[in-house]
Amino acid sequence: MTDTPVFEVRDIRKDYVLGKPGLFGGKLRSLAAVRDVSFTLRRGETVGLVGESGCGKSSLARTVLRLNEPTGGEVRYHGRNILDLPKAEMQKLRRHIQVVFQDPYSSLDPRFTVRRILSEPWQVFPDIVPPARREARVAELLTLVGLNPSDADRYPHQFSGGQRQRIGIARALALEPEVIVCDEAVSALDVSVQAQVVNLLKDLQDKLGLAYLFIAHDLSVVRHISDRVIVMYLGQVVEEGPTDAVFRTPRHPYTVALLSAVPVPDPKQKDRDVIVLEGEVPNPIMPPSGCPFHPRCAHARDLCRQTPPPVREVGDARVRCHFAGELEPAADLRHLAGPSEPGDRA
């Protein structure tokens, strides 16, 4: 089912110039939020994107969508480099590429009712839903995301956090896009509504071949929905591979630490051993020398402190570590074999 690349991202880079010069009035500082990231997203495929808070996931997403201007690199949409497209052309493309933003509230216009928020894009792209069908389509979209058709007359501030998040999802679906970038799109939903939305996304994918870039901190959802997973650390991809391979045999020490730290919904496993990442939190303004993970890596050796590791292929995965494939994961990852069935002991 996965064939034509919809998106091909090559060596994309995003530097931010920090607004205020240093305390001593020195030169402007810059922060490399995304450092030479490459990946491909195919039709009908979901690529999960995970990593430490602040490692550059949202920046990567925004840059790929040209909501941020990249500092370097290439983004091909169906083979065409969209970074040189004139604004008007880019505008036309946008209907095929939708985003669900991480912060649902600030992305919904507070002055508009939900009906208007959902149907506004049809003014710009009138061929998607004919005017006579619009009212019914709004009701359909709301029902799909677990809201009620009567919610169409309400304003964003009258909804709960998770309800707003679903308005954002309905809005992305309204344009019948080909790609949806979901930046923490289900993080404010209870697990039942989340299951409903995740099932919906998968259904649409099966029927219409939608592709998703799925950014999330909830690793069980990522595991469930993604075909492939990208793990980022400090602006770089440190591991990439088929979802099962990455979850079953994580190779990069950061991936191992991440998987080890997943909270397990079983109070009996509360005292499980978890890798605690010691050491300084990484500073993206002055990244460490050599391997950026070395100050916190239990396996670090001199080579790691001096030389940035190359990407190595290990099995189906690509891993940015000098010793990829040679390290024993120093963690208890038994919880990845699944929680004990809740509620089945009387």
């Binding site: 209870d190 299951a195 995740v198 909830d218 919880h335 509620g343």
Partner: peptide, 20 residues
């Protein structure tokens, strides 16, 4: 009970998720 049954599983069991 429905909520607990709806949790996605970390062990990657596939198929549709249960939802209430």
């Amino acid at each position: 009970r429905g909520l607990i049954r709806s949790m996605p599983r970390l062990d990657g069991a596939s198929g549709a998720l249960h939802a209430i």
